[in-house]
Amino acid sequence: MTVVYPAIFTQTGDKKDTYLVSIPDLDGATEGHGLADAIGMAKDYVGNALYDKSVLPPARAIKDIDVQSSEFAQAGPSFVSLIDVDLEAFRRIEKSRNVRRNITLPEWLDDMATAAKINVSAVAQSALKDRLGVSR
């Protein structure tokens, strides 16, 4: 399911070409360096804000968004654009990201792995995949 929400982009005029992004229907904000990065950050914000929601907040029509009402209105010139996110694709991507887990090893084993330059995370992933019968 693809969702579409209006976002207000405000260019600050700094050396990093920063755009502040307000997403009023989700009571959220983000920023990016350059317009492409700002759009990507806005998509990430929308995806994360709606990731586990079964009922989605309604999105206003683009014509109903007033750039002067943005929390960043005084930071520079602003415009409104629509942000679309395929929530099903976003959820699949998010689930495929790595997560950090701590494991406990005897110190002697950790010392040997370090000396042999073995990536303990890669070995743990391989062992878990073998144990669970996962091939991806």
Score class of each variant (00 low, 15 high):
75 A>R: 05
4 V>H: 06
92 R>W: 06
100 R>F: 07
60 R>P: 07
77 P>F: 03
136 R>L: 08
88 E>M: 09
41 M>Q: 07
12 T>A: 03
25 D>Q: 03
92 R>E: 14
72 F>H: 00
98 N>M: 10
107 E>I: 13
73 A>N: 09
39 I>A: 01
61 A>T: 12
106 P>L: 15
30 T>P: 02
114 T>A: 09
45 Y>A: 05
99 V>M: 09
72 F>L: 00
19 Y>V: 00
48 N>K: 06
27 D>A: 10
112 M>R: 15
74 Q>I: 07
2 T>Y: 06
99 V>S: 10
101 R>V: 14
90 F>W: 14
80 V>D: 03
114 T>Q: 10
45 Y>D: 01
123 V>G: 04
82 L>R: 10
30 T>E: 09
67 V>G: 00
23 I>M: 04
72 F>Q: 00
56 L>W: 04
63 K>Y: 08
71 E>I: 09
101 R>G: 01
57 P>T: 14
76 G>T: 07
108 W>P: 00
4 V>L: 13
68 Q>E: 13
40 G>L: 03
80 V>M: 06
118 I>P: 07
93 I>G: 09
53 K>T: 04
43 K>L: 03
8 I>Y: 00
16 K>Y: 07
80 V>R: 01
64 D>S: 13
81 S>C: 11
47 G>W: 02
23 I>T: 02
2 T>P: 01
6 P>Q: 02
127 A>L: 14
49 A>M: 14
40 G>D: 11
29 A>R: 07
75 A>C: 10
22 S>I: 00
128 L>P: 00
66 D>A: 05
96 S>V: 02
20 L>W: 00
102 N>Q: 12
94 E>I: 05
90 F>K: 02
26 L>S: 06
115 A>V: 09
129 K>R: 15
105 L>T: 04
55 V>M: 12
31 E>F: 08
33 H>L: 12
74 Q>K: 11
134 V>I: 15
7 A>L: 05
20 L>I: 05
71 E>T: 10
91 R>A: 05
130 D>S: 14
127 A>W: 05
91 R>H: 06
12 T>L: 12
62 I>Q: 09
106 P>K: 15
34 G>V: 14
44 D>P: 01
82 L>Y: 10
102 N>A: 11
124 A>G: 06
24 P>S: 01
99 V>Y: 02
112 M>D: 12
55 V>G: 07
88 E>I: 08
68 Q>C: 06
75 A>Y: 04
42 A>P: 02
115 A>I: 10
69 S>K: 15
57 P>W: 13
126 S>G: 12
26 L>A: 08
116 A>L: 15
127 A>T: 11
35 L>G: 03
50 L>N: 00
40 G>V: 05
93 I>K: 13
82 L>F: 10
112 M>G: 05
31 E>C: 08
100 R>M: 09
61 A>L: 14
118 I>D: 06
107 E>C: 03
71 E>V: 08
61 A>P: 05
66 D>G: 02
64 D>H: 10
98 N>Q: 15
128 L>D: 02
